[in-house]
Design a protein around this nucleic acid. Structure first.
Lengths: 224, 224
DNA sequence: CAGGAGGTTAAGAGAGGGTTAAGAGGTGTA
DNA sequence: TACACCTCTTAACCCTCTCTTAACCTCCTG
């Protein structure tokens, strides 16, 4: 777990960082809002611990700006009890949790862990009829039965499932799966063949259909 | 774990109780402050989930009274965002945590678990199937039998156990374990090999699995 | 009936991961 | 200080599975 601690009180910052280290958690440190933003843009943190009172750019602004830039890393705001009203604004700016100073280090750790696992632990899934793809688990099932699919097969499946019930052209499929490094042969054909073996052989109805000249679709019923 | 849910919105209450049940957590329900207090006096709950807005006797009062009676069962307050100011009072009355409506059920469960173990003085532990890691004791057991795991092995195990049943990528694992000081060799491979020897050899089923091209998982069943 | 689009099959190369052993560095003890 | 012990890093080698490739097949259409 990698944290970013943004705190201008050097003593408190050092205290937090030391404690995190004792718990086996690595952390970077910024003492003002500007350098915090730079670090946030360059790294991928699991949680950001953000003091509200900061020189140059305050915590609320930092939070607001990173959210505007599409960064959804969990943020824990640190605030003094007498500025508790800030919290309301804090949550509006996209903070996920807060702690009132002075706080227990244990408490900080617990909240960090909760937040970091909440984000990463979500099991996003895509469903097309009887077919379910749990992304984080790397698991594909049809009628509840687990199916083995190779890595590239998974990518193809993901593109098709996301697009379903629309048709995905050959070109788009190749681009989405291989990006710039496209094999110059009939690799896609072979992968589709294998994918069919895995998700359609032994099952009814067939899900993966070819629309000649247009591309491929994943759907239960094929209406023309 | 036994919870008391105090909530006058029948739909929300039913939702919470159903969800708890799915997670294997039993719960009682009260729809007003008075009956809540009666239940609290008669039973020993692990955690009390307490809405602030209640008919007859509000949540803050319930909390205050039970504390006066010497009951230190952990309390999680439920509050709407626009009455966030209540929290200040909430904590003053002896609440241990709060949740802002609307909240994620997952979040509620996590906080309940944290509180119930914190109070009961149990050592924080992570469990994945038959594998238990007691953090403070630095002790790992499988089927109750203690297992010797090296320091770096412990870190790897911790990352994997926290993420379970999701997959942890090679990169994330390396980052979480070594931070900035990454060895430039196949060290991770060797540590995983050793970890397998320690936690999986001599046991069934295997827990540590490789997802080629994606990373590693710790879980009981792997549907290849 | 020829040509094109897509389907099927099998083989070889390569990547990624597993295994092993040696040595460096640190720590506690006699 | 010397020794024993433990852990981590490193490098070499092996093995398995996946991907690519190419050749051939089938079906449909013009």
């Amino acid at each position: 777990m990698l944290l970013l601690v943004v705190e201008d009180d050097a003593d408190l910052a050092a205290g937090i960082i030391d404690f995190l280290e004792l718990e086996g958690i690595s952390s970077d440190h910024a003492n003002n809002g500007k350098s915090a933003l730079n670090l946030i843009r360059q790294h991928s943190y699991d949680v950001i611990v953000l003091d509200i009172n900061l020189p140059k750019l305050n915590g609320l602004d930092v939070c607001k700006m990173m959210r505007q830039e599409g960064n959804d890393t969990p943020v824990i705001m640190l605030t003094a009890l007498d500025t508790l009203k800030d919290k309301i604004t804090g949550f509006a700016q996209g903070a996920d949790d807060y702690l009132i100073k002075p706080f227990e280090m244990e408490e900080l750790i617990v909240r960090c862990r909760v937040l970091s696992t909440r984000k990463s632990g979500q099991v996003t899934r895509i469903t097309v009829g009887p077919l379910v793809y749990k992304l984080k688990l790397n698991e594909v099932t049809r009628d509840g039965k687990p199916i083995h699919v190779s890595p590239i097969g998974m990518k193809i499946l993901e593109v098709l499932m996301r697009a379903s019930p629309s048709i995905v052209s050959r070109d788009k499929l190749i681009n989405d799966v291989w990006g710039n490094d496209i094999p110059d042969s009939n690799s896609l054909k072979v992968h589709l063949f294998n994918l069919r073996k895995q998700i359609d052989t032994d099952f009814t109805p067939k899900l993966l259909h070819t629309i000649v000249g247009k591309g491929f679709v994943l759907r239960e019923e094929l209406n023309t």
